[in-house]
Amino acid sequence: MSNSTVMDSKTAWGGNNVSPYGASYGKLMMWFFLISDALTFTGFLSAYGFYRHYYSSIWPTAENVFTHFPFMHGNHPLLYVALMTFILIMSSVTMVLAVEAGHRMDKKGVTFWLGLTLIGGAIFLGSQAWEWYHFIHGTELGAIELGKGYYTLPDGTVESTKGIIARWTDDSKQVLLLPWREIAGDVTSPYLQLTGQELTEALAAGKEIYGANLTHNEYGHPLFGDFFFFITGFHGTHVFSGVVINFIVFVNVIMGTYQKRGHYEMVEKVGLYWHFVDLVWVFVFTFFYLV
């Protein structure tokens, strides 16, 4: 970037006004905050990865959980999450365009692009609320949380059924599917089936579950629900605070605060935070929804 500006001493580092990093104090501190925040998310996602593989034989597949799309019937695995991802990437683009406009002191441009970023963030938050609603309320069919009992797997091992989630094959409720896979982790291997006498016994000992909360989860292991609420909730909190901060800066842009100050660095700083939120979602999308 060609033209630089000598900044006021309040935002400069101490020591002869020399910045060893060629960046202001505020921008660098934003980066340091983002590192610590990134490590929190790294912790969340590694813990998720650990339990996902530890319980791989009974872990639900995300593409079987998030199959709804607003105003559409039927099965649309991952489509809605893909749309949410697209919205967030798009809002990252509008944010970086706002930063670019700020570099040219183009107040109108900053207002326009930052406004679009706000709208993108709001749509994403709405989408997340919609997805939480569906996950919490679950399907019409529900599932059965099995009680005490033992089942022999095809390979001869005997497993306790306590707390295991079994799902119906269809509305007729004649066949229950046990989530054990023939080969642990292989999402293509078929589930075990319960019918007749076995089914009656399983229903008597078990409990009907609809949707998910922190202790029960219709779709499978309760930890899947816990991680879903904590990871997407923690990310959603970041998006929410991002929208609030962007709004405050947006109001300042309209009032001409940064025009008077002579530079739009504040837009760049909140922009870093906003890109970080997008960056985290890129990882959540892969590790929670895809793999």
């Binding site: 900044m7 970086v96 760049e268």
Partner: peptide, 30 residues
């Protein structure tokens, strides 16, 4: 030492280049 300064401005010309990079990256991400 260099006086404390930071690149908070760029010209129309640089802006055009920056915008091209931004949109290229958008297509890559998409």
């Amino acid at each position: 030492p260099e006086p404390y300064k930071y690149a908070v401005h760029h010209s129309e010309e640089d802006g055009k280049k920056a915008r091209r990079v931004i949109w290229n990256m958008f297509w890559v991400l998409l």
